[in-house]
Amino acid sequence: MKLLLDEQRTELLANGRANAILRENGLAEQDFNPVVKLFCPWGGATWLISELDPEDEDIAFGLCDLGLGFPELGNVSLSEIEELVGPGGLRIERDIHFEANKSLSAYAKEARLHQCIVA
């Protein structure tokens, strides 16, 4: 399964470009809704991704939860996520049913409260 659909990649890059322009101009970044949810079927790791770095499309920004009780906002390498292989050859999957209903910071606030991503 592809981690990102073409439409998702396009939206993630647009979000990344928009925030890059805001940063360049010293303005506050926009708090986008997550575009995609990735999860580890053999463990508790989950990622809610809201943007891609327009200068390095391998670098995604979002809410990252490795299942250790400390979800945090930050950057993650998509190629590293894609390389993960679990028991029986399981791979990281995209939640095909995920539809964001709030901003990334709202998910982060809730995740800190519950010590895991609730999405």
Rank of each mutant, 00 (worst) to 15 (best):
E7Q: 14
G16P: 10
S77N: 07
A119Y: 03
L22T: 06
P41L: 09
E11W: 01
R23W: 10
E51H: 07
T10D: 14
G69C: 03
K109S: 11
A20P: 02
P54N: 09
R9Q: 09
L78D: 04
T10P: 02
A18Y: 02
A100K: 03
A60F: 00
D58P: 08
K2Q: 10
E11C: 04
D31V: 15
A106W: 02
L22R: 12
F32S: 08
Q115R: 14
N15A: 09
L63T: 03
I59K: 06
F70H: 07
K109I: 08
D58H: 09
H97G: 12
G44P: 10
A119S: 11
A100L: 10
D6N: 12
G43E: 13
V118H: 12
L78A: 02
I59P: 03
A100M: 05
D31E: 12
A100S: 13
A100Y: 06
K37V: 02
G86V: 01
D95A: 09
L27E: 11
S77T: 03
G88C: 10
A20M: 10
E24Y: 10
R17A: 13
L113H: 13
T46K: 05
L22E: 09
C64Q: 08
G69Q: 05
L68K: 13
S105P: 00
I21P: 09
E11D: 05
C40W: 11
P87D: 10
L104Y: 00
D53V: 11
I81L: 11
V85C: 04
P41F: 13
E80T: 01
A106D: 05
